[in-house]
Nucleic acid binder design. Structure first.
Length: 155
DNA sequence: GCCAACGTTGGC
DNA sequence: GCCAACGTTGGC
């Protein structure tokens, strides 16, 4: 099993939205970055996802989810009405993919980006690197265990 | 709202 | 293939 971190703007799609979704499962559409797409294609059912809220008052990791379905074509790329429409996308040769993720649980507290930047263990995560905008990234077991350890720490 | 960082586009 | 212009991300 592998571990991942996925970013979402809570105004668009939050952990709460995932919790409320049918079957507490939702497809992760709209990824239009090749590196992020490639990572999604590496995901396997059962992999754990750290759910990160970006572009909000308190950016940070807010919960856990699991990969419920492996990568399949992102239909929103073919829909001209969709904000993530890609005119160069072709149904016969899908360019963009998505996975399904299932809600696992909310963390007891948000582990903020500011906090994550404090630790050497996490220094190599793209998330904490200056200027990095990757929205889907792998997390090592060591990093994942360390982050979940922070959950119990009092700020 | 600002703006740094980065990816993409397209002219040449 | 280069690179300037442009658009987007996302922290602050």
């Amino acid at each position: 099993m592998r571990y991942w971190l996925m970013k979402s703007e809570p105004d668009e799609f939050s952990l709460e939205d995932l919790k409320r979704a049918k079957g507490q499962t939702e497809h992760w559409d709209g990824v239009r970055n090749y590196q992020a797409r490639n990572y999604m294609r590496e995901m396997e059912k059962g992999d754990q996802v750290l759910f990160y809220h970006s572009n909000c008052a308190e950016p940070g990791i807010v919960g856990l989810a699991t990969v419920a379905r492996e990568a399949y074509p992102d239909h929103t790329a073919l829909d001209p009405e969709d904000p993530h429409y890609d005119p160069k996308s072709n149904p016969d040769k899908p360019r963009w993919f998505m996975v399904d993720v299932k809600y696992e649980r909310a963390l007891k507290r948000t582990i903020t980006l500011t906090e994550l930047k404090d630790y050497r263990t996490l220094k190599k995560m793209p998330l904490v690197r200056r200027g990095n905008r990757l929205s889907v990234m792998p997390v090592t077991k060591k990093q994942r265990d360390f982050i979940l350890g922070l959950e119990k720490k009092i700020r």
